[in-house]
Each structure stands twice: as structure tokens, then as C-alpha cells.
């Protein structure tokens, strides 16, 4: 197993962890955190697989990840604003318990 695969597997672990948390956590803020962890896992996978070249790493996935990070932060900001609007409208930041059964 090479370094690239080790980090790729770590990325997969992060993705799965984030997905699991996204499903079971009830608090919306924590769901947003979970999505961010999932995204980080995907970025890690991409960058790790980009190092499989013989010389310098593949710059194309790296460029994709840079744009991806910026898109992720804007999506996070949007999600947080939506959460605030939900609160303002009288909703709750935490989903009700029953729906998870």
C-alpha cells in the first residue's frame, strides 16, 4: 500500500464518518459540520490520488480542490443563513426526535 492509497482510504473514512453523522445527528448545525467533513474526505481522496504520478503531482485535481474549498465555504455560509431564517420563522434548530424512528 502506498502513501496515496493510505490517504485515499483516510478520505473514504472521513466521508463515511460524515455521512453517518449527517444521517443520525439531529441538530442542523451539526449536520452542516458533517457535510463539511464529508467534503474534506472527498478532497483528501482527490488530492491523494493525484500523487500517484511519478514526478510532480497532478495539478488538475489540486485546482479542482481549491475551487471546491471555496464553493464548500459558500455553501456552508448559505446553509447557516438558511438555518437562521428557519429559526427566525419560529422553527427549531434541532429536528424532532420522532422522525428518526
Amino acid at each position: 500500500m502506498t502513501t496515496a492509497f493510505f490517504y485515499a482510504l483516510t478520505g473514504i473514512a472521513l466521508f463515511i464518518l460524515g455521512l453517518y453523522a449527517l444521517i443520525i445527528q439531529l441538530h442542523l448545525l451539526r449536520k452542516i459540520l458533517a457535510i463539511n467533513v464529508m467534503g474534506s474526505g472527498v478532497f483528501l481522496l482527490l488530492i491523494a490520488l493525484a500523487t500517484r504520478t511519478q514526478s510532480t503531482p497532478d495539478p488538475v485535481p489540486q485546482a479542482m480542490v481549491i475551487t471546491g474549498i471555496v464553493v464548500a465555504v459558500s455553501a456552508t455560509a448559505l446553509a447557516l443563513v438558511l438555518m437562521r431564517r428557519l429559526l427566525d420563522a419560529g422553527g427549531k434548530a434541532k429536528l424532532p426526535e420522532e422522525k428518526t424512528d
Binding site: L9, I12, F15, I16, L49, R52, T53, P57, D58, V60
Partner: peptide, 22 residues
């Protein structure tokens, strides 16, 4: 997770990538 890990491990250990083209 196991499926994803399997798919990743099936990838060739060395890929040419696009760094040479770039």
C-alpha cells in the same frame, strides 16, 4: 465504505495523470 475502499484499491498504483500534459 468497504465498497468505496475496494474501488479505490482496484485503481492502478501509478497513473500518468495530467501533470505531464500540463
Amino acid at each position: 465504505g468497504a465498497g468505496l475502499a475496494y474501488a479505490v484499491l482496484k485503481l492502478p498504483a501509478e497513473a500518468p495523470g495530467l501533470s505531464k500534459t500540463v
